[in-house]
Design a protein around this nucleic acid. Sequence first.
DNA 1: TATGAATGAGTCTTCATTCAT
DNA 2: AATGAATGAAGACTCATTCAT
Lengths: 195, 195, 195, 195
Amino acid sequence: MGDKSLHKKNYIIEKAREVFQKKGYRAVTMKDIVDACGISRGGLYLYFSSTKELFEEIIGQEEKDAKTVIAAARDKDTTPATLMFVYLNEQKKEILKKNDNLSAAIFEYLFENKASKNDNPVIKRIRSDIDELEKLIIDGVEQEWIDCDNPKAAAKNLVYTIEGLKVTAQTSGLTADDLDKEIEYIMGTFGLVVE
Amino acid sequence: MGDKSLHKKNYIIEKAREVFQKKGYRAVTMKDIVDACGISRGGLYLYFSSTKELFEEIIGQEEKDAKTVIAAARDKDTTPATLMFVYLNEQKKEILKKNDNLSAAIFEYLFENKASKNDNPVIKRIRSDIDELEKLIIDGVEQEWIDCDNPKAAAKNLVYTIEGLKVTAQTSGLTADDLDKEIEYIMGTFGLVVE
Amino acid sequence: MGDKSLHKKNYIIEKAREVFQKKGYRAVTMKDIVDACGISRGGLYLYFSSTKELFEEIIGQEEKDAKTVIAAARDKDTTPATLMFVYLNEQKKEILKKNDNLSAAIFEYLFENKASKNDNPVIKRIRSDIDELEKLIIDGVEQEWIDCDNPKAAAKNLVYTIEGLKVTAQTSGLTADDLDKEIEYIMGTFGLVVE
Amino acid sequence: MGDKSLHKKNYIIEKAREVFQKKGYRAVTMKDIVDACGISRGGLYLYFSSTKELFEEIIGQEEKDAKTVIAAARDKDTTPATLMFVYLNEQKKEILKKNDNLSAAIFEYLFENKASKNDNPVIKRIRSDIDELEKLIIDGVEQEWIDCDNPKAAAKNLVYTIEGLKVTAQTSGLTADDLDKEIEYIMGTFGLVVE
DNA sequence: TATGAATGAGTCTTCATTCAT
DNA sequence: AATGAATGAAGACTCATTCAT
């Protein structure tokens, strides 16, 4: 695949992402993609042979995990408390882009692909997030910023809560204010205060 | 609609629920329902004109909310701490019946019907759960069983976490042990100990 | 399936046979059948879900085997010599209906389904023809009408030759005269004379 | 067309033959050829504009006729009986290479192209085989090796039988033993004994 | 009320064929 | 000569929905 077709592949991915954001996962047909891209049916099949394949390519590139977010924010003066806050706020921003993010599609995709669970990027991201947050909490405890008896359980609880916020935002709607209060509460459970 | 028709309608709902539990929401066709019920296509249309209509009827009857669970467990000697534990265990039981509950189907339904949010039974149930748990926490604080500064925020956080557990169980899988640890952690955040 | 739909099924089979006679096996599409029957695509699928299924139904009804032909011609005064002649002439008649028989389609079908060989009606018919002709030859030898050292080998040879005539008629064309001469020759190998 | 092009054309024919042997005639697509040759779609079209054209080129080169086989075996000491045996054995060898010969593809091709019969190489080969075998039989009769009243009819019968064996091998399967017995029987009809 | 045959629109998928480079 | 991306037509198959009985 030459430079040119790589370009086209990326173009398709770009357009398809928009479609998945708007319509979720299951509702998307190859025709939707074809129409969004303005290419021929056959043309699309040159690059992707199903919406599933296409979607997997997209989420492979998509997931912004805790590691990345935290790493980006970390410098020598950043405290664990600040990092936690940055992470939660990043999640908030993602959640609020409701029609502009892939969570609905991702959930649908996962419901449909329960069987082949272990190798999918979302589950990997969840596991890695738990690990990363655990490390962050342990750091915070050691530096006496964070108050926590059971860092692993706390990390898991946090990740489940964030998944809950994502899904609730999709299904029932959450406002910026709802999320701010939630962040404040979570910070409080670690003995941290939002300034 | 006479008694006989009502009886048949309930029969259809019953069978359809099983179908939705097994296949989710979007994947279910009118034919699936017809086959499960052993009735004719035309016959089904006399009662329900789409899977959506049928599904809405089902979830209207479905939701076991916190109020019901807590009310069932309450008697004059039950402490708020015990009620909290009972509630969390009820959730655990529901979550573990993974292929035998409607959550996957409900999530799918909601993703597909974001627009008509406010009148959907799930959002009503979430609101009512928050209220009910808030009351429980306030009771617990007053009776000095529970330790909590901000009962409303705590109730919301708990509901979001449970939504997160439900969805994670569907998409990534959770074991009984995972849930026990999570329950223990949650109880701990209220200063409660699982015996 | 009620009387009415059985009637329709037979109607489809009837029309489909004409299509297979005209176009062979592989070239026939569900659309061809639909057009020939003047019904809708979906309608056809109610009865048959592939051209293969339809074709198998047709050839199941189709094969006129040696047993049937010979049985039909047999009465107490019929000699083995006559029966042999009747059988060969029946084959001749079938072969000459070139565009009106299914042999081309059957050969194509068999080429495409070599794997599942043993249970197909054509192979069964070939085996049964060999047996039937062997019996006929043995009868003929016993009654001193037919001259043959190895009835089984002779029966096989005859069946192969007839298959060869069928296929040659399809691929290269054979006239009534070609077939008459061939029948005369075959009769001769058994010491029989065509009157 | 220069030497280089001719070389490439032959290369394509070579590879395509393998494809036709494996997949028959109708099932072969231009893409199959392209893949087998490792050339581009456009490149193939420079040489052949359809699978039909390509296939006709192949069978034009293909046929090993009786003339060639018999000529190859003939030397001054070879008897007609031996030549007959050599010819039959050559056919046997061809027939047993079931997935490695073109007969299935050729039959399919002929079924699909009945119209343009007279100029097709198969019918020419059949005619020439009949002639060649007739000559052989006549020779044999003159040299008192072969016993036959009607050499032309016998030659035709033999050719039809061999066509029947080819097609039966493809559709129903024939073993080496089946063929040996058949050869023995055929030799017997000419008063010849297989040693 | 109830049946189930029938329809036709919609989607998926594959291929021969073209054409700019 | 050669490439391979792109097209669009053709066929398979499924479903929601209707309607005569």
